[in-house]
Structure formats: structure tokens, C-alpha cells
Design a binder for these strands. Structure first.
Lengths: 124, 124
DNA sequence: TTTGTAATTGCAACAAAGTTGCATTAGTAA
DNA sequence: TTACTAATGCAACTTTGTTGCAATTACAAA
């Protein structure tokens, strides 16, 4: 499936890159300059994840958040870092802190979804 | 608000305790011996979390899972351990592995939601 | 430039998870 | 037994995310 460049993709990509944070679908829809249908935004975001342009985090609110973080560009085998959700400013950011663990024998970890919640330094 | 003992609460509590895993609402509804309304199950589960009898984990599927784990009974200030979701047997269990991190200055962590995903030793 | 194909989009309908208002039922303390 | 109020069931609703389908549109090839 060849990818095509479209205004919707460009706008979402730009927004994610420029925000530097993990954004939920509704935040993206709200902050986008142009009008893009909800379904389209989801499709674009899912495609970004498929193509490993962005990664997806599921927060405690059960919602998906999408982020592009340069630091994890060279996708490691276990490209996992903590995320921080600030309850005050309601944003999620990627922390450059690797998730460290040692699982019991026989366990095979393919993915990690780690979100810390609290207040960030800007809101302290 | 005084708590009352009811068949629904007892059944859910017993199921959670006996399963030893983190269960989603629908798994609970399915495995319960008695019929309990969906809304009631949610209310019971939320109450357990409020009373710190159980804890809630949100997995990558965006669903809430509830668990009672004896090991974390004496609720530490930061009572956080990893959870493991096995994609093969579709269960979530509490790992007795503490979540370790060092957040940047000014960040105040109140809660952690960490789920590792892969295959467990039973399914390897 | 023009054209053809398939990727993309919008719309509407849908599914799943979870919550809530309200009337009824049922613990439990007095 | 009684009275009070917590708990329940039901139905309606909200939110998040997905999907089928017809209409557009990006883009490579002619």
C-alpha cells in the first residue's frame, strides 16, 4: 500500500511534531488548523503508528495518545520509556527515562505501556 | 457512607481473590456464578478501589482491569508494580516487580500504570 | 498535460466500555 | 419490627474508536 501525502496527514504530523507532547484524538481535532473528519484523524494516526512514525500510549483514562519523539527515533528493539501525565495541565509527555524491569523466566515482553501520573514541574 | 454486605459484592470479591489475576468487567460478569447487572459490577468495583480493597489497571486495550493482590496489601505510599498482559491467554497478572524511575526535578508522581505485554511463561 | 488506479476522505452507522438517574429492593442498626 | 439509606436493576446516555461505502484526490505513467 503506497502512502500518499495529504493535507490531513501533513497537518497532523506537523501538530504532533511541533507540540512535542502526546496528544489524544480530540486534542488533535481541536488544535488542527483545518477541518478533518474524526475517522480520518484516527486512520492517519493508526497509519503513523504502523509506519512507526509515531507511537501510541494508552493512559489511565483509557484514551489513546499519540506522540512523535525524536529521542526514540532509532527504534530500539524495546523502545520503551516512561510517560508522564500531568493532571493539572492535562498533557502527556514522553520522559527520556527507560522502563527497566526483569521479568520472571519464560516471560517474553513485546511492548510496554507505562504512564506515571501526577503534576509536572511547570505546574508544581 | 456505610458499607453493606451484599451477594454481589461477596461474589465479585471472591472471584477476584480466587482468580489471583486482574479481571476486566466483562470477564467478571462472565465468570460470576450469580447474575449481576453490569452497572452494579462497575459500582462494586469502583467501591473496592475507593476502599483500597482492589486496584485498577488500564491496559493497552483501553479497558479497566481490577485486581486484589495480597502482596501489595500494606499499601505503600507508591504502591506500584508492573503488570503483565499475556496476549496468548489474555490475562493480566500483577508481577511482584516494583516500578522504578527517577523523574526530573519538580515532577510529583502520584500514581503509576505500567503494563508489559507479551507472552507469559505458561504460554511460551 | 492527461489519464487511470488505488489511496484517502467524509459520512453515517455501529460497537464497546463505562456512567448515571430513578424507582425499587434489601441490609442493618435501633 | 421498624426506619433509614445503601445497593440494585433497568434503561438511557456518553465517549472513544472502528468500519462500510461512495465520492475525491494524489500521483505515477503515458
Amino acid at each position: 500500500m503506497n502512502r500518499r501525502n495529504t493535507p490531513a496527514k501533513e497537518a497532523v504530523l506537523h501538530l504532533l511534531a511541533q507540540s512535542g507532547k502526546a496528544l489524544s484524538h480530540d486534542a488533535i481535532e481541536r488544535e488542527l488548523d483545518i477541518d478533518v473528519n474524526r475517522a480520518t484523524i484516527y486512520r492517519v494516526l493508526n497509519q503513523f503508528c504502523e509506519d512507526e512514525i509515531a507511537h501510541r500510549i494508552v493512559a489511565e483514562d483509557g484514551k489513546q495518545y499519540f506522540a512523535i519523539c525524536k529521542k526514540c527515533e532509532p527504534h530500539e528493539v524495546v523502545h520503551h520509556h516512561f510517560h508522564f501525565r500531568c493532571v493539572s495541565c492535562d498533557t502527556i509527555e514522553c520522559l527520556q527515562i527507560p522502563v527497566q524491569y526483569a521479568v520472571p523466566d519464560g516471560y517474553d515482553v513485546r511492548h510496554a505501556n507505562c504512564v506515571l501520573t501526577g503534576t509536572c514541574n511547570a505546574c508544581a
